[in-house]
Simulated assay, not measured.
Amino acid sequence: HPEIYPLVLTTKTQEIFNCRIDEDITDEQPYKLINKEDIFEDLRNRAAVSDFHPVKKIVQEYPGNELLLVYDKDFKYGLNFYLIGTEEGKENYLNPPEVSEEQEEYKEYIPEDVYIYKPPVSKPWVSLGSEKEIEEESVTESTKQITYMISRKRSEFGVPIKFSDQNASSVKDAYIECTAYPDKNFTLKQLEKDVGMQVIPQIKDISTQTK
């Protein structure tokens, strides 16, 4: 609907233009004719705070002197009011064309929303470069894996074993210590790093006992 412009009118604006819901505007008369000069006066007084600021250009280019403001009770166009931006649309709303009895009877047999299923049609995949980004962000192993094989003699299978405590310093090859040391061959300097962050307000929890 190119001639319909949804608006949000606050309680203050409704009081200024006498279009208060359930008082000035009712289900029997859900519209109000607004003088164009009154809208300009509101724009001069409240500037960007005015609820009519989003449609300022539409109001300026409107050929008539009075614009039709309609209360959108069911939020058909998303907001609580909408403005009709053409004289033709205003006349069609105020004086809707008469519908013949045959057309009225025909409407009764036609559902309002008829859903027509359209099966999806397969299309060839077109690359837009996303697979390169996925490849860059994917994690790959940079070092070669080392494989160990541990075996024992066949004659030792199923033999009873008795465990006991021993001093690691008194028995040869019973304890091996591998301390960490810096290896200059593998020293890497990090130049760039992707970090995900989220800013949250500081929160403090306090418990108290009061009546």
Rank of each mutant, 00 (worst) to 15 (best):
D72C: 01
Y148E: 07
E112H: 09
I200T: 15
L43K: 02
K211F: 13
V99C: 05
V159C: 07
D38Q: 08
S164L: 11
K90L: 01
P160N: 08
L94R: 01
V121F: 05
L69H: 00
I16C: 03
E101K: 11
S142T: 14
I4N: 03
L191A: 09
P111A: 03
Q14G: 01
D51V: 03
E88W: 11
T147Y: 05
N45Q: 12
Q145P: 14
E105C: 03
K57V: 11
T147R: 13
I200Y: 09
D72R: 02
K189R: 08
E108L: 10
V195W: 05
K57W: 06
E137K: 13
Q166Y: 15
S100I: 05
S127C: 07
K36W: 05
V8R: 09
V99H: 05
I203K: 06
S100D: 06
L68A: 00
T86D: 02
E101D: 09
E15C: 06
K172A: 09
Q14A: 03
I161A: 10
L191D: 13
S142N: 13
E137N: 14
E61G: 05
T140R: 10
Y93K: 04
D165K: 14
E66A: 06
I34D: 02
I16M: 04
V121L: 09
E88K: 10
E102M: 07
I110K: 05
N92K: 04
P124F: 02
I134W: 10
D22V: 02
P97V: 13
E135S: 04
S207Y: 14
A48H: 12
F17N: 00
C178S: 09
D173R: 04
L79C: 15
Y82V: 01
A48L: 08
N185M: 10
Y77G: 04
G129R: 00
P111T: 01
L9I: 01
Y71M: 09
I200R: 12
K193W: 13
G129M: 01
S164H: 12
E91W: 05
D165M: 11
K107Q: 09
L188A: 13
P201D: 05
E131F: 08
L43F: 05
K90G: 00
E136Y: 11
N80Y: 01
D22I: 03
N95E: 08
D194I: 08
Y62F: 15
W125V: 15
Y106N: 06
P120T: 13
V139Q: 07
Y77L: 03
E28Q: 11
E15M: 06
D51H: 03
A47Q: 12
I150P: 04
K189F: 10
D42K: 01
D38I: 04
M149C: 12
L33T: 02
K32P: 00
L67A: 02
Y106I: 10
I134S: 15
V70E: 00
S170Y: 15
I84G: 03
P30K: 00
E108S: 06
Y62V: 03
Y148K: 04
T26R: 01
E104K: 06
E41V: 09
E112K: 13
I200P: 07
V49S: 12
K73F: 04
